[in-house]
């Protein structure tokens, strides 16, 4: 009973954060802030969703099914893949956006802009 409740709560948190990522993508004004929503929230939501599946697999293993161990271990691998690749991909997109000339909207300060300009003058 308590186990079922834990699974429901974990799934609800995960789905809520994924939904937040979608809303954030629609509401924020420029690429960088959209990346904030799209990267952090989906990663965090995926941790909880994978966590619930891992718990289900571990309980199946405990009650004597070898399928459960396979489910849990493969889900851990999927989680590690998400955790490693997601922030790196966001970093690549942000860098490409800045180099292709998209300036942050309503920026207070932009150190990188001054830096690239200086380098071009030196050349």
């Amino acid at each position: 009973m308590i186990f079922n409740l834990i699974i429901y709560i974990l799934l609800a948190i995960g789905v809520f954060f994924n939904l937040l990522a979608g809303v954030g993508l629609l509401r924020f004004p420029d690429v960088y802030t959209r990346l904030h929503a799209g990267t952090k929230c989906t990663t965090f939501g995926s941790i909880f969703i994978c966590g619930s599946v891992i718990l289900i697999g571990l309980r199946m293993w405990y009650t004597g099914s070898t399928d459960g161990s396979v489910l849990a271990i493969h889900t851990i691998f999927a989680l590690v893949a998400i955790l490693l690749t997601n922030p790196t991909g966001a970093h690549a997109i942000a860098r490409a956006a800045h180099r292709s000339g998209v300036a942050p909207v309503r920026a207070v300060v932009d150190d990188l802009q001054n830096n690239t300009l200086k380098k071009e003058e030196e050349k």
Binding site: G24, T33, V105, D110
Partner: peptide, 13 residues
């Protein structure tokens, strides 16, 4: 920030 829409962004080194 998604709900209120308050942002004050910038790029720092």
């Amino acid at each position: 920030r998604v709900i209120t829409g308050k942002i004050n962004p910038g790029i720092v080194k």
